[in-house]
């Protein structure tokens, strides 16, 4: 009687806690990052990855299709080698290009893929040939300032 209702309340309490955990995992956390459908890895070389970090999203036309797995450096070319884990359910042409972009002015950086026209597709271990490095704001600004400075000194 009394013990029964106490057990019921405790049971409900524990369930509420587990439901909260489930909500955090499914609705708040990114369950897709766990790659339930499996992924395949492709690499892309960049001259400069800017502030790209592992786990950053990989998107095609703004839709998330995978994430950055690793960023290493090629000891011969001194280029950054970015390994991308792409979801198995998507296939992309082999002549697709990859670029590093920034979400908003100060947002985080991500990799954007632009599909090409080839009939052959990227598969595990493929390499994306055409890449566009991160646009680094400071570099653009300093270039702008230098060219301005050169211009004005020539003028005087």
């Amino acid at each position: 009687m009394q013990a029964r209702s106490m057990e019921l309340t405790v049971g409900l309490f524990v369930m509420a806690g587990l439901l909260a955990l489930a909500m955090l995992a499914l609705k708040v956390g990114n369950i897709h990052a766990l790659n339930l459908g499996g992924t395949y890895a492709v690499t892309a070389d960049f001259n400069d990855v800017g502030s790209l970090k592992p786990k950053a999203p990989v998107t095609v036309a703004g839709v998330r299709v995978g994430h950055v797995a690793r960023i290493t450096i090629n000891p011969q070319t001194y280029q950054a080698v970015v390994t991308l884990d792409l979801l198995k359910k998507y296939r992309f042409p082999r002549d697709s290009s990859a670029s590093i972009e920034t979400a908003g002015l100060l947002g985080e950086q991500y990799v954007s893929l632009s599909p090409g026209g080839s009939r052959r597709y990227l598969k595990n271990g493929s390499k994306i040939r055409i890449t566009q490095s991160a646009i680094i704001l400071e570099k653009i600004i300093s270039q702008l300032l230098y060219s301005k400075a050169g211009h004005s000194s020539g003028h005087s």
Partner: peptide, 19 residues
């Protein structure tokens, strides 16, 4: 609101860390 959250909260780091 939800999509930004989902893209930034990691289960293995953030939620497990809190747990």
């Amino acid at each position: 609101f939800w999509s930004q959250m989902q893209s930034g909260v990691s289960i293995s780091n953030d939620i497990m860390g809190g747990l």
